[in-house]
């Protein structure tokens, strides 16, 4: 019954490369697959860090200029060396206690579930990235037209 209807689709642009901002695209895309939808994520600029082999396991969160940290930190303290690493360790420890999936786990779930993952070719040029710098299991790098061609038929489109 449900499989006769064309599938609903979500198209997401992931433009941020911090730990907190890596979650929403991956959570939404993997959940969409679980809800029998199609999902695709276009990674551009700092968002490429989410699918870059050398950074995907070590995304960070900065306390500097971030008044939303659960333990607020004055900017003058947040600017000190090591504070970003410390805030990241704290955040990961809270997430671990809450049994939140890790970014690499969600990426693997996304790939296994058939989420289409595109890297922005232009941003790769800017950042000096080669295809071999990115994880396996993603599509060939593409430009805006490919994403738009996918997104124009989507029911939900998000820029994150």
């Amino acid at each position: 019954m449900a499989e006769k209807k064309p599938k609903k689709r979500i198209a997401i642009i992931a433009s941020k490369g911090t730990l907190d901002m890596a979650y929403p695209p991956l959570i939404l895309a993997t959940t969409a697959i679980a809800m029998d939808m199609e999902a695709g994520i276009f990674f551009t600029f700092y968002g490429l860090n989410i699918i870059k082999k050398s950074t995907m396991n070590s995304l960070k969160i900065a306390p500097l200029g971030n008044p939303a940290m659960p333990v607020p930190m004055p900017n003058i303290i947040g600017a000190l060396p090591g504070m970003t690493a410390m805030a990241t360790v704290m955040m990961k420890s809270w997430m671990g206690k809450a049994n939140v999936a890790t970014i690499p786990q969600l990426i693997q779930t996304a790939i296994d579930g058939g989420v289409r993952l595109w890297a922005c070719q232009m941003a790769m040029e800017v950042m000096g990235l080669k295809k071999s710098d990115l994880i396996d299991g993603i599509e060939d790098p593409v430009g805006a037209a490919t994403f738009l061609d996918y997104a124009v038929d989507a029911d939900v489109s998000l820029f994150i």
């Binding site: 959570i27 993997t30 959940t31 679980a34 809800m35 049994n99 939140v100 999936a101």
Partner: peptide, 13 residues
């Protein structure tokens, strides 16, 4: 039990 969004849905599926 003990798992947070989105894991219960992903595992149920």
């Amino acid at each position: 039990k003990g798992l947070n969004c989105p894991l219960p849905i992903l595992k149920t599926k």
